[in-house]
Simulated assay, not measured.
Amino acid sequence: MRSGPIVIFAAVCTATVLVATAITGGSIDEDDDKGPGGDLSLNVQEIPEEYRDWIIQAGKSCKAHPTVVTPALIAAQIEAESGWNPNARSPVGAIGLSQFMPPTWATWGVDADKSGSADPLSPPDAIMSQARYDCWLATKVSSYKIANGDIRRLMLAGYNAGPDAVRIYQGVPPYAETQQYVARILQLIAKYSVATDESAGPFGSRVIAHAQRWTGTPYSWGGGGINGPSFGFAQGATTNGFDCSSLVQYAVYHASGGKITLARTSQQQVTQGKAVARQDLRPGDIIGFQLNGAGYDHVAIYIGDGQILHAPRTGQTVSTARLTDGYYASKPQIIRRYG
């Protein structure tokens, strides 16, 4: 840790010349979906055993941003900060698993292990304090209303460089250390978010977990599919990634254990599954948008807390956005559920 209006030029999110495959297979579970918080998508085998319960507890502690401050993110942060070394010390004075600087610890440190004092070298104290600070940072960077700002990326940048740097630069600051820090953690989340048994848990949560693995992956027009990112065509020909509908197709296919293969285009995906009323929207549902007035040319995954996860457009990456953002709120929408 260092001391320290949305404009979207959205073409049809995937090419209509691609061959679409029909939705197949039977129904998946209809359990009430509680979202991706908790340990549903956490690969505990990658976490030192003595820290597992604390990581799960920390990942459930941020009620304001449960889809941002997740167990997998906290674990990925710790690997990037200290490599799971509880006695780590940096040349600039950061210490412990979560590499708190003394002034930051003085504000955010908690006595999680009930030893009588908050100690950054105590793993329980460090882990729970990290989640507490992350949660505050997520709220802080959200208040900046940064155009095209992914809360998770901005929160991580704030952890490394300080929230003021995020505000000043209106995004991830142009510091090589901070940009590398954010990129590394987003990549590490995949390591910690693949559940040991990917068939476990409600269907919607599995959809989210599989999509969240690819946060930070470039948008590629016509790229991606059930096997993961790929090169697209036209403006996506030189980019290995996903477009909006291929990300949804991938997430639903793997969430269903290969039982459901959605059509490839957003226009067809919004005709599959079953319609859902706005008041019944729950995490893992798919929202179709009419961005350009010519059919439903964009799709996104609802992840809870008023947020969507999607592949927005060329030049951007798989990231989150808020449904209340003026651009999305003003567009016609349709909601579908596939499980």
Rank of each mutant, 00 (worst) to 15 (best):
G236S: 15
G236E: 15
A237T: 14
A237L: 13
T238W: 05
T239V: 15
T239D: 15
T239L: 15
N240H: 14
N240F: 12
G241V: 02
G241E: 05
F242L: 11
F242Q: 10
D243S: 05
C244G: 07
C244D: 02
C244I: 08
S245N: 09
S246P: 05
S246A: 14
L247D: 00
L247V: 03
V248Y: 00
V248T: 10
Q249K: 15
Q249S: 15
Q249W: 11
Q249I: 13
Y250Q: 03
Y250F: 07
Y250W: 01
A251D: 01
V252W: 10
V252R: 10
V252C: 08
H254W: 02
H254Y: 02
H254I: 04
H254S: 04
S256F: 00
G257Y: 00
G258L: 13
G258T: 12
K259G: 08
K259N: 12
I260S: 10
L262A: 12
L262E: 07
L262T: 13
L262R: 12
A263I: 13
A263V: 11
A263F: 10
A263S: 15
T265L: 09
T265W: 04
S266E: 03
S266R: 06
Q267E: 15
Q268Y: 12
Q269F: 05
Q269G: 04
V270N: 06
Q272V: 11
G273W: 06
K274N: 13
K274P: 06
A275F: 10
A275R: 12
A275L: 13
V276Y: 10
V276T: 11
A277Q: 14
A277Y: 12
R278A: 09
R278K: 08
R278F: 10
D280R: 13
D280Y: 13
D280V: 11
L281P: 02
R282N: 00
P283H: 04
P283I: 05
P283T: 00
G284H: 07
G284V: 06
G284L: 06
G284I: 03
G284N: 08
D285Y: 06
D285P: 00
G288W: 03
F289V: 07
N292V: 11
N292H: 15
G293D: 07
G295Q: 08
G295N: 08
Y296D: 02
D297K: 13
H298W: 05
A300E: 05
I301Q: 02
I301T: 06
Y302W: 05
G304H: 02
G304P: 02
G304I: 04
G304E: 03
G304W: 02
D305K: 01
D305N: 12
D305S: 06
D305Y: 00
D305V: 01
G306L: 03
I308P: 06
I308Q: 05
L309R: 06
H310R: 01
A311G: 05
A311W: 04
A311S: 09
A311T: 06
P312G: 07
R313C: 08
T314H: 14
G315V: 07
Q316G: 00
Q316C: 02
T317N: 04
T317E: 04
T317D: 00
